[in-house]
Amino acid sequence: MTTAPFGAELRDVVVRYGRKDTERALDGVTLSIRPGTITGLLGRNGAGKTTLAALLAAFRRPTSGSVLVGPAGGPLDDPFENPWVMMHTQLVRESGDVWGDSKACDTLDYYADLRPDWDADLAGRLLDELEVDVRKSPDALSRGKRSALGAVIGLASRAPLTIFDEVYLGMDAPSRYAFYDALVADYTEHPRTILLSSHLIDEVERLFEDVVVIDRGRVLLAEPAEDVRGRGVSLTGPADTIEPFVAGHQVLARQHLGPTSQVTLFGELDAAQRAAATQAGLEIGAVPLQDLFVHLTRKSSDLKEDAR
């Protein structure tokens, strides 16, 4: 790849999907995607992930606000109908954009024709590994194989900005892990910016350097994955020993097993609290990103319900 990884910026972006002003897929999004990172794009169904991806890949324009994409260290540009930016941006939508009724290799040929950094060897290797028969038409492939075809296109394009929007749908676990492995391996060899949206957070959270959570068209948080992980903590030990540490924190979950409790808290424990907890014989654990995500998105929607 001869082009530096792309960064992206969105400023006050609004996308309306209906005639009414309240029908907004994105509702004032301001966000930066750091060049060269693997960024997790998390959100519930209909949160606006797909719309966000469509804007970055010039599939559509925002109703208002600005979308800017460009190489690290260079000026950013509006990607829409910008040939240089578009040829370097790859969006893989669920099940991929393919010719449904002609052979899969016809689709691959089209991508190979247009993509400046297409790697046919990589494509061939991955198709073999994921057992996709390119002589069949995508319509004749199973959902999982069709998704795998999309995943292969995304990686073989080697685009400085590559977006995978729920590309795993229908793929079985071995195929998904083969995809993650190929992603990490190719990313380290050919650094680029990767935006990965998934509902299978447990499987992918360690791939993320940054995490963006959007909910109802708004950015809930955008920060390094380590910081997100630090937003929660779990304590395990005797119930009455735990209670003093719970005070002043939001409890995400509470489980009891005989005299032992496990409490999941939102918010950090400071060093002194950690030391005291360890001293008291409590086990301190991490909270899976999945649990934090569920909490974050539930909370904001509940608040909105209350406001009505």
Partner: peptide
Amino acid sequence: MSTPEQTSTHAGSQAARAMAARAHRRGTR
């Protein structure tokens, strides 16, 4: 990754315009 000519390549640069023109022909064809 970050040799000078790479970071100087952006949508407005001369090299990028030449690349874009080639991409346009490839796309059309």
